[in-house]
């Protein structure tokens, strides 16, 4: 066990955890931030996507010891009033079915729009291909990202 000082959603947090504990479980079990989801544990589904210094990463495969001073953002910290342009687009298009993968989809899309504010459909598909949606809401996810980009 070791003590880690983390910056999560702009807040300093102290966590006691084994060095190999994935950030996913630090967020979910140690810090009660349940918005980041467990899907596969091997960075294949994207349900656990968070931002590390603005880049989308799979929190299931980032041990807490590798985070050090990086700024972590989770779905809970994406916006203060659920008013991120993507969250608004998700409401406009009523995207989710079961909803489980959606936080990861939104976090991945947010990182995309951060580096490319007017992505083509090809660029959206390439960026989002790592995020599985078992319900098959891909049509609506793509439409929501497109309309979010047009509202930037």
């Amino acid at each position: 066990m070791a003590t880690y000082q983390l910056t999560i959603n702009g807040k300093q947090q102290t966590v006691e955890a084994d060095a190999d504990t994935p950030m996913l479980w630090v967020l979910r079990d140690h810090l009660d931030l349940k918005g980041t989801k467990f899907g596969c544990g091997i960075a294949q589904c994207g349900a656990c996507t968070i931002h590390m210094d603005g880049n989308a990463v799979r929190s299931c495969s980032i041990p807490v010891s590798a985070v050090s001073n990086a700024e972590i953002t989770t779905i809970e910290g994406l916006s203060k009033k659920a008013d991120h342009v993507l969250q608004k687009a998700w409401v406009e298009h009523d995207v989710p079915q079961c909803g489980y993968c959606q936080a990861g989809q939104i976090m991945n899309a947010a990182a995309l729009l951060q580096r490319n504010s007017s992505p083509s459909m090809d660029e959206i598909e390439t960026a989002m291909n790592g995020n599985l949606c078992r319900c098959g809401t891909y049509n609506k996810i793509k439409a929501a990202i497109s309309s979010a980009a047009s509202n930037l």
Partner: peptide, 29 residues
């Protein structure tokens, strides 16, 4: 008439609405 999913806001802000999110003080995994 199309009405939005009643859990939409909870889903897009990461609220603990799923079974795996349930927590009771002292519970074991």
């Amino acid at each position: 008439k199309s009405q939005k999913n009643v859990d939409l806001d909870e889903i897009i802000t990461g609220k603990p609405v799923f079974g795996i999110d349930y927590k009771q003080e002292g519970m074991q995994y």
